[in-house]
Simulated scan of single mutants.
Amino acid sequence: MARIPEEGVFTQGKIDASTGARWIYVTPQMARAHPKGRLSLGLWLIVTYFIAVAALRIIELAQYEALPVGAAAVLVAIPLLCALLLALRAPWGAVLVIILSVLSVVGSLSRMGGADPIGLINTLVLIAVAVYLHEGDRPNLIYRHRYRSYKSKEGADGAAK
């Protein structure tokens, strides 16, 4: 396990007026060394989901052969790339998942006439994963190297100074 650096670099963001929280930015080394900087069971399940999506696309493309080889390779490579980047704790992994979920929503809206329950389920799962990666405390520490601080001007216990 990596060791937390002796001298930390903390950069504070603006305080949110509605919640009183602020983002505290840390270095990637500090985030990786923190115990919450490792992947949790939920994040490993997300990685496994993307691997399963790629495997199912390989099976589907092998059965139907409806797409050219290049397009089929892209359809398989994107979820594998998401899984790899998320497992390696690369910041672009979370960004790629959010982009993929937006593209899935656009694709689902363009196919509204056709019934595709598997595609709809995939879109809903991608939206849930994207929201978790964007709002979750652990994913923010891992992929964006920041955490929420709820300390106000009054102090940690809420008593005015």
Rank of each mutant, 00 (worst) to 15 (best):
residue 138 R to M: 03
residue 129 V to K: 00
residue 143 Y to K: 01
residue 107 G to H: 10
residue 79 P to G: 15
residue 76 V to K: 15
residue 104 S to F: 06
residue 70 G to T: 04
residue 82 C to R: 09
residue 132 Y to E: 09
residue 129 V to N: 03
residue 93 G to E: 14
residue 72 A to I: 00
residue 54 A to I: 01
residue 77 A to Q: 13
residue 136 G to M: 06
residue 127 I to V: 07
residue 49 Y to M: 14
residue 82 C to Q: 13
residue 103 L to A: 10
residue 93 G to A: 13
residue 61 L to T: 05
residue 91 P to L: 09
residue 123 T to I: 00
residue 145 H to M: 01
residue 103 L to H: 05
residue 94 A to D: 14
residue 134 H to V: 10
residue 120 L to K: 12
residue 66 A to I: 07
residue 111 R to N: 12
residue 42 G to W: 01
residue 84 L to Q: 02
residue 129 V to S: 00
residue 59 I to S: 10
residue 97 V to D: 07
residue 119 G to F: 02
residue 122 N to S: 08
residue 59 I to R: 12
residue 47 V to S: 03
residue 78 I to Y: 11
residue 65 E to T: 03
residue 121 I to Q: 06
residue 134 H to A: 15
residue 114 G to M: 10
residue 115 A to K: 05
residue 116 D to L: 12
residue 111 R to I: 02
residue 90 A to T: 12
residue 76 V to R: 15
residue 41 L to M: 08
residue 139 P to H: 03
residue 139 P to D: 00
residue 43 L to E: 15
residue 48 T to Q: 06
residue 119 G to E: 07
residue 76 V to G: 14
residue 49 Y to C: 11
residue 78 I to K: 06
residue 77 A to N: 13
residue 126 L to Y: 10
residue 119 G to N: 04
residue 84 L to W: 13
residue 83 A to T: 12
residue 117 P to F: 11
residue 92 W to I: 14
residue 78 I to H: 05
residue 75 L to T: 13
residue 125 V to H: 00
residue 139 P to M: 00
residue 62 A to I: 00
residue 96 L to H: 02
residue 78 I to L: 15
residue 97 V to Y: 06
residue 143 Y to L: 00
residue 45 L to A: 12
residue 145 H to S: 01
residue 70 G to V: 02
residue 46 I to R: 03
residue 92 W to S: 14
residue 71 A to F: 09
residue 116 D to H: 14
residue 52 A to D: 10
residue 54 A to R: 00
residue 104 S to M: 09
residue 103 L to M: 11
residue 81 L to P: 08
residue 92 W to E: 14
residue 43 L to H: 11
residue 118 I to V: 15
residue 117 P to W: 15
residue 63 Q to G: 05
residue 54 A to P: 04
residue 105 V to C: 08
residue 131 V to S: 09
residue 128 A to D: 02
residue 141 L to A: 01
residue 93 G to P: 13
residue 114 G to S: 12
residue 97 V to C: 11
residue 64 Y to W: 13
residue 44 W to F: 10
residue 73 A to W: 15
residue 85 L to A: 08
residue 107 G to D: 06
residue 46 I to Q: 07
residue 115 A to H: 09
residue 140 N to L: 04
residue 82 C to D: 10
residue 141 L to R: 03
residue 100 L to N: 07
residue 70 G to D: 14
residue 65 E to F: 01
residue 60 E to C: 04
residue 86 L to I: 08
residue 132 Y to Q: 12
residue 131 V to F: 13
residue 98 I to A: 12
residue 55 A to I: 14
residue 91 P to I: 03
residue 73 A to P: 14
residue 140 N to T: 00
residue 115 A to M: 10
residue 62 A to G: 05
residue 59 I to H: 11
residue 124 L to Y: 05
residue 116 D to V: 11
residue 78 I to G: 06
residue 50 F to P: 03
residue 132 Y to W: 12
residue 71 A to D: 13
residue 83 A to L: 05
residue 53 V to I: 15
residue 138 R to D: 01
residue 118 I to K: 09
residue 92 W to R: 15
residue 92 W to L: 15
residue 51 I to L: 15
residue 137 D to T: 06
residue 123 T to Q: 01
residue 96 L to V: 01
residue 92 W to Y: 14
residue 56 L to Y: 15
residue 82 C to L: 09
residue 54 A to S: 11
residue 41 L to Y: 05
residue 88 L to I: 05
residue 61 L to C: 01
residue 136 G to V: 04
residue 86 L to W: 01
